[in-house]
Write a protein that binds this DNA or RNA. Structure first.
Length: 874
RNA sequence: GCCCGGGUGAUGAAAUCGGUAGACAUAGCGGACUUAAAAUCCGCAGCCGCAAGGCGUACGGGUUCGAUUCCCGUCCCGGGCACCA
C-alpha cells in the first residue's frame, strides 16, 4: 500500500475498474427489488456548475447506498437539450445551436464521468434528437385529436424593434434586453394543453404523496388554487340588447357593498366604451405597455378609468358603474371583478384614490366588542370572514356561510348565477416562437384547418444546419421546411413553425430512460418494471417545485389515459422527492466613477481577517488593491462568484469535492462555498488514508468475531455500532448526509485515542476500519474502493452489503441522566439501565446538585423523562 | 403584490417526537515535532464575570415543569409567480 494518498491515481483506477465490471449497468431483474434513482437532467450549457455537482452527488450517494442494501438500482442521465441559450450562443458566435449543444454534451459527459457517478450511460438520451422528440410529437397528435390540445389566442411580450416575441426573462424593466425598446403585449394564436381538466386530480393526488416535502405540496396546492365561491352576472343593456357581465367572487356575502365593477383592459366592454371615449382608448393603449409577467403586473401602480357604462346590481337593482382597471387580468376567470371597497384592501385603496363610494356591508365583533367601521383607514377586520352582514337588506345578520348560501340561492333563482368551484390554475400554453425546440406537428390547410401530422410522417425533423439572427424563427425562411401538402386533401399547405415549450420534453424523459432504445413505441413494459409504485427517488432544485414537477405529474396522467402503461396504473411519477438547496458564494466587486460594478471572482481575491477570524478586508491578488465585499448569493455568471468544479477536481480529486459538498450542509438547505472547507475535507481523506495505512502496515488482522472485551474496547465498539446504526438511518431515512459524516469523524477521533495494540484491539481496529470504508463508500467511493481492497484483498467495497449494527455491542448496564432544577441544568446522576421512574426521581432529588438548590426543602414536583433527564420543580 | 422557505458562536452547521444549546468541521489562539517552514499531532475556545453565577438560538409577546422546536405579531434574507431551465 502506498503511504501517500494520491487522489488522481486512486480515482482513475477505481473508475477503470467500475467501467470494466459494468458496475453501473441496470438490467431488469425480477429477483431483486428495484430502486430507480433519478436526478434532474441538466441543460447542456457548456460546463457544470456546483449546483449540478451537488445534485448528482446526492443521487450517486443514494444509488450506491441502495445498491449495498441489496436493491437493483437504475441511475440514468440525459440532456435537456432544447432551449434559448443555444440560440443566444448562435447569435453571438454564428455556430448552429445543434453543433453548440452537441459539443457541450460531449464535454459535460466527460465531467460527469470524472466525478465517478455510477450512471448507466447505455440509457443516455438527448431531447433534441429526433428519436426522442418524435414520441412527443406523436403524443401531441393523440392529445390534439382528444381535444386535450387546442388553439386560442394568448398574450406574449412583443419587442417592436426586433420584431420578435420575448421570454419574460428577456424583458428587463419593461424593455427588450437587446433592443432596449418598450415591450408591448400582443395577442397571438397558440396551442394550449388542457391541464385544467386535471386540476382536481392534480390537487387530490398531492395527499397521496407522503414522500414529498410538505413545502412543495403546499406550493402546488396554492398554485392550483381551488376556491369555492359564486359566479354571477350584472345585467346591462347595450345598443338595445340585453347582456350580462360575469364575475367570480369568494366573498358573495359582501355583495351588498359593491360600489363598482372593474374589467380588464382587454375586456370587450372596455373596447366597446373606448370607441366613443378617446381618453379611455388611450388608457387601454397604455395598459398594453409592459410585459406579461405576473410579478410586474402585481407590483405596478393600480390605475383605472370609468367607462360610462352602467350595469344593474342583481340583488339591489342599483346602477353600478363599470371601470377599466389595469390590475384586472383577462386570463383569470371572466376578466372582470366586483369591487367592494369596504371589504377588500385593494378595492379600498382604489376607491380612496378615485373618490369612489365605500359602503360597509359586513361587521365583526371581536372580544365582545362590536367593531366600528370608518372609511379613514383600512383595518384588518374589514376583510374577515368571521363576520355577519350589515346594511344588507334581507341578509342582514347572517354569518359568512349562511349569507353566501342565501345569496347564491337567490342569484340562481334569478337565473343570474350560483355557486362555482374556480381554479387559479390556467391551461398550459406550449407554443414558442423559437427555432431550437421540438416542432409542433400540425399542418395548416386553407380548406381543412389545423391537421395533425399523420404517424407515418413523424417525426417532423427540425433542420439543424441553420443560421440564427435573433429576429424571428429561421424556419420561417425555410420553404423546404414549411411548405408541404395537406395530409387530408392533398392541396398545398403550411407547416407550423412554432416549437414546443421545453418543459414538454422534461415532462416525460424519466419514462423514456426505461426504454430509450425502443423505436416502435414511446414507452414499453420496462416502464412498469422501473416505475412501479413511482420513481423511488427524484432529486433536484427547489426552484422546480411548481412548474416542472406539476407538468410532469400532468403528462404522466395524460400518458396513462392514452393507455400507454397498459395494465400498470401509474398515476404519479415520483414517489419520493428531495429538493436540494442552492449553492451560494460570497461576492466581491469594484465600482467605477458612475457606480457601475465589476464583479470579481472569489478565486482572485485574498481575504484578510482580524485576530478572531472575522473577514475585515479583501484585495485582488493580481494588483494587491482593495475590493468591496458584497453579499452571499447564488453562484451565477452575472455576479461572477461561481467556482468551477473542474478546477476543484484537478486540484483535490472528485472525492474531496463530493465529501465537501455533502458535509457542508444538509441537502435541502443552501450550501455556502468555502475554500477552507474544501481543504478540511481533503485533510480528512488524507487522515483516513494514513490511519488505514498505519493499520495495514502492521499487518491486517481478522475482524473481531465475538468474546469478552476490556472496558475501553467495549466502549469503543459500542460507539462503532451506534455509528453504523446512525449512518444507515441518516442515509436511508433522514437523507441527512452531513451528520452521517460527522458521526464517522467522531468515530475516527475515538479510534485515534484507542492507544491499545493488543490482539483484541487489532481485531476491533480491523472491524472498525472495514465498517468505516463501507460507510463512507457512497460518498467517497474511489478512496473507499482503494482502502477496502487493502483491508480485505480481493474484495470490492461496492459489492459488499452495507454494515449492520450488532445489538449485542449496543447493550449497556448504566446510563447517565441530567438533573434539572426548574428547567435549568444543575448536575447529573448515573442509574442502572432498567431503573424504575420512582427510583430515578429519588436518586435525582438525593443528588448533591439538587440538595444544594433545595436547601433542605421538599420539591414541589419531580418530572422523570426516561433515558433523558429529571426535572425537579421547587 | 401573492405563494413557499429560512434566520443558532468569527464561519458552515448539530440538537431526529417539546427534554443537557453549539456535536462535527472551518477560521483563530496556545503547545509538541522541526535549524526553519510546510505537513502532522495535542490542547483551548458562545458572551459577561476572578469566581459563584447570570445571559444567550433575528426581534416582541404567549403556551409549558421545560421552547432553537408549538402559537400570535414584527423585521430581515432567499426561492417561485405560468416564455430562464
Amino acid at each position: 500500500m502506498q503511504e501517500k494518498y494520491q487522489p488522481q491515481e486512486v480515482e482513475l483506477a477505481a473508475q477503470a475498474h467500475w467501467q470494466k465490471t459494468g458496475a453501473a449497468r441496470a438490467v431488469e431483474d425480477a429477483d431483486k427489488p428495484k430502486y430507480y434513482c433519478l436526478s434532474m437532467f441538466p441543460y447542456p450549457s457548456g460546463k457544470f456548475h456546483m449546483g449540478h455537482v451537488r445534485n448528482y452527488t446526492i443521487g450517486d450517494v443514494l444509488s450506491r447506498f441502495y445498491r449495498m442494501q441489496g436493491f437493483n438500482v437504475l441511475q440514468p442521465m440525459g440532456w435537456d437539450a432544447f432551449g434559448m441559450p443555444a440560440e443566444n450562443a448562435a447569435i453571438q458566435n454564428g455556430a448552429p445551436p445543434a453543433e453548440w449543444t452537441y459539443s457541450n454534451i460531449e464535454y459535460m459527459k466527460g465531467q460527469l464521468q470524472r466525478l465517478g457517478f455510477a450512471l448507466d450511460w447505455e440509457r443516455e438520451l438527448a431531447t433534441c434528437r429526433p428519436d426522442y422528440y418524435r414520441w412527443e410529437q406523436w403524443l401531441f397528435t393523440r392529445l390534439f385529436e382528444k381535444g386535450l390540445v387546442y388553439k386560442r389566442f394568448g398574450t406574449v411580450n412583443w419587442d417592436p424593434v426586433d420584431q420578435t416575441v420575448l421570454a419574460n426573462e428577456q424583458v428587463i424593466d419593461g424593455r427588450g434586453w437587446r433592443s432596449g425598446a418598450l415591450v408591448e403585449k400582443r395577442e397571438i394564436p397558440m396551442y394550449y394543453m388542457k391541464i385544467t381538466a386535471y386540476a382536481e386530480e392534480l390537487l387530490a393526488g398531492l395527499d397521496r404523496l407522503p414522500g414529498w416535502p410538505e413545502q412543495v405540496k403546499l406550493m402546488q396546492k396554492n398554485w392550483i388554487g381551488k376556491s369555492e365561491g359564486v359566479r354571477f352576472a350584472f345585467p346591462y343593456e347595450i345598443d338595445g340588447k340585453a347582456e350580462k357581465l360575469w364575475v367570480f367572487t369568494t366573498r358573495a356575502d359582501t355583495i351588498m357593498g359593491v360600489t363598482f365593477v372593474a374589467v380588464a383592459a382587454e375586456h370587450p366592454l372596455a373596447a366597446h366604451a373606448a370607441k366613443t371615449n378617446p381618453e379611455l382608448a388611450a388608457f387601454i393603449e397604455e395598459c398594453k405597455q409592459g410585459g406579461v409577467a405576473e410579478a410586474d403586473l402585481a407590483t405596478m401602480e393600480k390605475k383605472g378609468l370609468p367607462t360610462g357604462i352602467f350595469v344593474t346590481h342583481p340583488l339591489s337593482g342599483e346602477k353600478i358603474e363599470v371601470w377599466v382597471g389595469n390590475y384586472v387580468l383577462m386570463g383569470y376567470g371572466d376578466g372582470a371583478v366586483m369591487a367592494v371597497p369596504a371589504h377588500d384592501e385593494r378595492d379600498f385603496a382604489f376607491a380612496k384614490k378615485y373618490g369612489l363610494p365605500i359602503v360597509q356591508s359586513v361587521g365583526a365583533t371581536i372580544d365582545g366588542k362590536e367593531q366600528v367601521f370608518s372609511t379613514d383607514a383600512w383595518q384588518e377586520w374589514y376583510a374577515s370572514k368571521d363576520s355577519y352582514c350589515v346594511n344588507s337588506g334581507k341578509y342582514t345578520g347572517l354569518a359568512y356561510q349562511q349569507a353566501v348560501d342565501a345569496i347564491a340561492a337567490d342569484l340562481a333563482a334569478l337565473g343570474l348565477g350560483g355557486k362555482k368551484v374556480q381554479f387559479r390554475l390556467r391551461d398550459w400554453g406550449i407554443s414558442r416562437q423559437r427555432y431550437w425546440g421540438c416542432p409542433i406537428p400540425i399542418i395548416h390547410c386553407d380548406s381543412c384547418g389545423d391537421v395533425p401530422v399523420p404517424d407515418e410522417q413523424l417525426p417532423v425533423v427540425l433542420p439543424e444546419n441553420v443560421s440564427v439572427t435573433g429576429a424571428g424563427s429561421p424556419l420561417a425562411k425555410m420553404p423546404a421546411f414549411h411548405e408541404c401538402v395537406c395530409p387530408k386533401c392533398g392541396r398545398p399547405a403550411r407547416r407550423e413553425i412554432d416549437t414546443m415549450d421545453t418543459f414538454v420534453e422534461s415532462s416525460w424523459y424519466f419514462l423514456r430512460f426505461c426504454c430509450p432504445d425502443n423505436d416502435r413505441a414511446m414507452v414499453d413494459e420496462r416502464v412498469a418494471h422501473w416505475c412501479r409504485g413511482g420513481i423511488d427517488q427524484y432529486i433536484g432544485g427547489i426552484e422546480h417545485a411548481i412548474l416542472h414537477l406539476l407538468y410532469s405529474r400532468f403528462w404522466t396522467k395524460l400518458m396513462r389515459d392514452c393507455g400507454l402503461f397498459g395494465e400498470e396504473r401509474l398515476d404519479e411519477p415520483f414517489a419520493n422527492l428531495l429538493t436540494q438547496g442552492m449553492v451560494v458564494a460570497p461576492t466581491f466587486y469594484r465600482e467605477d466613477a458612475e457606480g457601475r460594478k465589476t464583479w470579481i471572482n472569489p478565486a482572485e481575491v485574498e481575504l484578510s481577517t482580524d485576530e478572531r477570524g472575522r473577514p475585515v478586508a479583501a484585495r485582488l491578488r493580481a494588483d494587491g488593491q482593495p475590493v468591496s465585499i458584497g453579499g452571499i448569493e447564488k453562484m451565477s455568471k452575472s455576479k461572477n462568484n461561481g467556482v468551477d468544479p473542474q478546477a476543484l477536481i484537478d486540484q483535490y480529486g472528485a472525492d474531496t469535492a463530493r465529501l465537501f459538498i455533502m458535509f457542508a450542509s444538509p441537502p435541502d438547505q443552501s450550501l455556502e462555498w468555502s475554500d477552507a472547507g474544501v481543504e478540511g475535507a481533503y485533510r480528512f481523506l488524507k487522515r483516513l488514508w494514513r490511519i488505514v495505512f498505519e493499520h495495514v502496515s502492521v499487518g491486517i488482522a481478522p475482524a473481531f468475531a465475538g468474546g469478552e472485551l476490556p472496558d475501553g474496547l467495549k466502549t469503543f465498539r459500542r460507539q462503532l455500532h451506534q455509528t453504523i446504526g446512525k449512518v444507515a438511518d441518516d442515509y436511508g431515512r433522514r437523507r441527512q448526509f452531513n451528520t452521517a459524516i460527522a458521526a464517522v469523524m467522531e468515530l475516527l477521533n475515538a479510534y485515534a485515542r484507542l492507544n491499545d495494540d493488543s490482539a483484541p484491539a487489532r481485531a476491533i481496529r480491523q472491524e472498525a476500519l472495514e465498517a468505516v470504508t463501507l460507510m463512507l463508500y457512497p460518498i467517497v467511493p474511489h478512496l473507499c474502493e482503494a482502502l477496502y481492497a487493502e483491508l480485505r484483498p480481493g474484495h470490492a467495497a461496492g459489492e459488499q452489503a452495507f454494515p449492520r449494527a450488532d445489538a449485542g455491542a449496543l447493550a449497556r448496564d448504566e446510563i447517565e441522566l441530567v438533573v434539572q432544577v426548574n428547567g435549568k441544568l444543575r448536575g447529573s446522576i448515573k442509574v442502572p439501565t432498567g431503573a424504575d421512574e420512582g427510583a430515578i426521581g429519588a436518586a435525582a432529588v438525593a443528588s448533591e446538585a439538587a440538595q444544594r438548590q433545595l436547601q433542605g426543602g421538599a420539591p414541589k414536583k419531580v418530572i422523570v423523562v426516561p433515558g433523558r433527564l429529571v426535572n425537579i420543580v421547587i
